[in-house]
């Protein structure tokens, strides 16, 4: 066989094969074993530790561009917070589209939450939109130094009323500084995660939900204990969805599906609608990754064959 041919499969064929590989498995009801990573277990544990009625800050900096990963992480995290009755103040400093995106996603999630028998998770009383800040560095520094000043003037819509200052909402009641929040969670597809560590680390526990490409750099922060936990890429989403179903060391250490030396029993939510993008997409990701590995192997075999053929040709 000609080694050069193995190295030059036409692009349209590669693209078509990739479409087939990422489509066909979606129609099969596949599931794969999953062992949640420590960072995701830590994030889950920290979220489950939050008292009902307490408030956290979420910097939601993702848009449609990374919805394949970020929306899954957002949904899994919000399911935990909604079910536990934790209040959230949302803001964004990465993209002007982000506030509309998380508000639309919350509307969708609230509908599902109510359908499975949960108490409505409502704007103003349970969550509040602080809005978009165009300069991420200055905004984050402002939140770090003087949260009240940074958020002053921002308004949201209380039920049956004209927009009011966000500090009048039950979510931000009594909140003066970033230390007053139990956690700052950054769900991002951009550098706002780094900007947050650089400016807020040490003031309140930080946790991230990042895209796959950001996992290695986020691991650096996690290893230095600058983060209490994080979810990275689709694997992180699947980990959170798994943990929502199984909990940690739950119902007891002997029979638990997910075990951890670090924690006692942390409840899961079996019986609820826990599965989402992670569970749906992850088996298909296997096929795509396997296809890529196969192509790399084919390319390298082609290269070796070409070299041998060239050497044999030269010898003649």
């Amino acid at each position: 066989m000609d080694g050069n041919k193995l190295q030059s499969i036409p692009k349209p064929i590669l693209y078509l094969l990739l479409i087939l590989v990422t489509t066909i498995p979606l129609f099969a009801d596949l599931s794969v074993p999953n062992k949640p990573q420590d960072a995701a277990i830590d994030l889950y544990a920290e979220l489950m530790k939050l008292e009902p009625g307490s408030t956290i800050l979420i910097a939601s900096d993702w848009t449609g561009s990374t919805r394949g990963e970020s929306k899954g992480a957002f949904r899994a995290i919000m399911k935990i917070l909604m079910r536990r009755g934790v209040k959230v103040a949302f803001y964004s400093s990465a993209d002007p589209q982000a506030p509309r995106v998380y508000q639309d996603a919350l509307t969708e999630l609230n509908k599902e939450h109510v359908a499975e028998g949960g108490k409505p998770y409502e704007r103003w009383s349970d969550w509040v939109n602080v809005g978009f800040f165009p300069n991420a560095e200055a905004a984050t520094n402002g939140i770090s130094q003087d949260l009240k000043g940074a958020f002053t003037g921002r308004k949201d819509f209380p039920p049956g009323s004209v927009p009011k200052d966000v500090f009048a909402s039950p979510v931000l009641e009594g909140k003066e500084k970033v230390e007053d929040f139990k956690m700052l969670l950054v769900i991002t597809a951009s550098k706002t995660s780094n900007i947050t560590v650089e400016r807020i680390y040490g003031k309140t526990p930080l946790a991230f939900a990042v895209t796959g490409v950001m996992v290695p750099e986020t691991q650096v922060f996690y290893q230095a204990k600058q983060l209490v936990g994080f979810s990275g890429g689709l694997k992180g989403v699947l980990d959170l969805e798994t943990l929502l179903e199984t909990g940690v060391n739950y119902p007891d250490k002997a029979t638990a599906k997910v075990k951890s030396e670090k924690y006692d029993t942390i409840e899961g939510f079996p019986g609820k609608k826990n599965k989402g993008q992670g569970t749906k997409y992850y088996p298909t990701l296997h096929f795509a990754l396997a296809f890529m590995i196969l192509l790399v192997v084919v390319g390298n075999v082609g290269m070796i064959m070409s070299k041998r053929q060239a050497a044999a040709g030269g010898a003649k």
Partner: peptide, 21 residues
């Protein structure tokens, strides 16, 4: 807008596969 944003970013998967190969 959101769907096109997603489509624009996902196109890179094809290029990354081709580049890796």
């Amino acid at each position: 807008l959101q769907q096109m944003d997603a489509a624009m970013f996902s196109v890179i998967a094809f290029y990354i596969l081709s580049a890796a190969y």
